[in-house]
Design a protein around this nucleic acid. Structure first.
Length: 135
DNA sequence: GCCAACGTTGGC
DNA sequence: GCCAACGTTGGC
């Protein structure tokens, strides 16, 4: 079981939309590096949903269902289905929190600000658990 | 809303 | 294949 982070602009599609929809197909990721991350997602993996607008923060959890597949409408994009798990009452961990910890300067979220899907290392997950997140 | 950083496109 | 011009993302 692996952990990933998926960024989204809440004005376009936010955690509240996922709450309503229960299951959604993540689409429109075209950056080759981000597409590779999507391709490596497997059923049962956990996806931390991150809002990249407003207060930049992890706002909820989803899990990967079904299998990832090419987008029939867009050869550069790749599709993965996410199922809603939970929405945090408060943004759980903000970008500012992560930066302030000084522990994750090498995390793609910090280092490659524009990468929209990221595989998360165990060290980061452990840190989140320490902060009280049950994963 | 601004703009820096970065990704993509297209002409050569 | 290089790189200038352009477009987009995301933090502030």
């Amino acid at each position: 079981m692996n952990y990933f982070l998926a960024k989204t602009d809440p004005d376009t599609y936010g955690i509240d939309d996922l709450v309503k929809e229960k299951i959604t197909t993540w689409s429109g990721v075209r950056n080759p590096q981000a597409v590779n991350v999507l391709k490596s997602m497997k059923r049962g993996d956990t996806v931390l949903i991150y809002h990249s607008q407003g207060q930049s923060a992890i706002v909820g959890l989803a899990s990967v269902v079904g299998s990832s597949r090419p987008d029939p409408k867009d050869s550069k994009s790749w599709l993965v289905d996410f199922k809603f798990i939970k929405k945090f009452k408060e943004p759980f961990i903000t970008l500012a929190d992560i930066k302030a910890s000084k522990k994750f300067d090498n995390l793609a979220l910090i280092k490659q600000g524009r990468l929209s899907t990221i595989e998360l290392p165990a060290a980061f997950i452990n840190w989140l658990k320490q902060k009280g997140l049950s994963l």
